[in-house]
Design a protein around this nucleic acid. Structure first.
Lengths: 198, 198
DNA sequence: GCTCGACTATGACAGCGGTCATAGTAGTCG
DNA sequence: CGACTACTATGACCGCTGTCATAGTCGAGC
């Protein structure tokens, strides 16, 4: 929750992502974003002349980049990188949050997809780009671990799909069960995709 | 889109589910629901004295029951029921829709989770119940196919999580790729869970 | 024919949303 | 000092939303 980082513009984008992932896009007000970012309301139209749509799109883009960047950190944290280990780390980020601070928030990209996929073309594209910015590094990591290139993209999509779905179910149930379940069930499948020769 | 079924009350619940899965809960207006259901606006307060929250909860409940009931139909459509085959059918329902009518709608239960998990306790419970009404039949079907009871619940959760996530990604990308990918990758894993001893 | 209940029909209201208009401040350059 | 730019500060506007209040219709039952 370190909102005090960088300039007001970045704080607003960050706060928007936070509020969106908790309440959804439509229920998140511009005034609320400015307030939480401790930024002046007048700065909204100054930094985001494109209005709410622009702000949402940037928040989604930020979230996608953030998720992509986390992949490298997860890998660095693993003593011996394996696909299943990476997936466990991705899942653990969520179980940790839910255990520590409750089930208040989901994935902002998912929220934007649900709320804007049909109503805003530019946001839909931003969401697609965010998923791509996330899937790419995951697939790259799989290749580095020895997963055949043709299969890495598919497994990355599977990992992200299962994670997103499990986040939904976990929030609904207020229980991390779904998250731990997908990690446990998918781990062996992912590890088995590593090329055994060489 | 057979809106002309049953009484106006059911039509409104059904229309609410339709609109929610397309635009999200917050962006769906009560007047809009009544209009699409070709029901009088005055009937809203008559049939749903609990207001929008009640209507949303019933729509979510309806969706959960619908999903649960589909499981039996999917099984009946399979010449030889297998876990992977069931999952393929579940996925195919979505690829068919997206292929035929476009990527306008997602899962209403997911939409309600994203929009209401934190803001409305009753809706959150309705969503949890909907997931339960869906997971139950899936797990039961797996048991019938020979999956060990201890494992069936976990695999059902995995199936539904992967499907929900893939729906999100597919809508974002406007491409069924994610859906077909999870079906293909998960099929062997699911089939391998069938007890091989008679 | 009257009554009573179920349902329909509208109009009003209060609140909030995003956006615009306008004015103000601060700091910097020339 | 004046001017110009970056940013801040408010207030107003309009559209929309959920909800309420009130009145109307319609069909049984007796």
């Amino acid at each position: 929750m370190a909102v005090s980082e960088r300039g007001p513009r970045e704080r607003m984008v960050f706060s928007a992502a936070q509020l969106i992932r908790r309440d959804g896009v439509a229920s998140t007000g511009m005034r609320e974003v400015a307030a939480q970012a401790r930024a002046p309301r007048g700065s909204l139209q100054h930094y985001f002349p494109g209005g709410k749509e622009q702000l949402v799109n940037e928040a989604v883009g930020w979230a996608g980049r953030y998720a992509g960047n986390r992949v490298a950190r997860f890998l660095a944290a693993l003593p011996e990188p394996t696909p299943g280990g990476l997936f466990s780390e991705m899942v653990r980020q969520w179980t940790d949050e839910y255990g520590a601070t409750g089930f208040a928030g989901g994935c902002p990209v998912a929220a934007a997809t649900v709320d804007c996929a049909e109503s805003s073309a530019s946001t839909r594209e931003a969401v697609a780009a965010a998923f791509a910015a996330w899937t790419g590094p995951v697939a790259g990591a799989l290749v580095d671990m020895g997963v055949p290139r043709e299969r890495a993209g598919a497994l990355a999509t599977l990992m992200i799909s299962a994670l997103e779905g499990a986040i939904l179910v976990a929030r609904a149930e207020r229980d991390v069960r779904a998250l731990t379940t997908v990690a446990r069930e998918l781990g062996p499948l992912l590890d088995a995709a590593v090329r055994q020769d060489g």
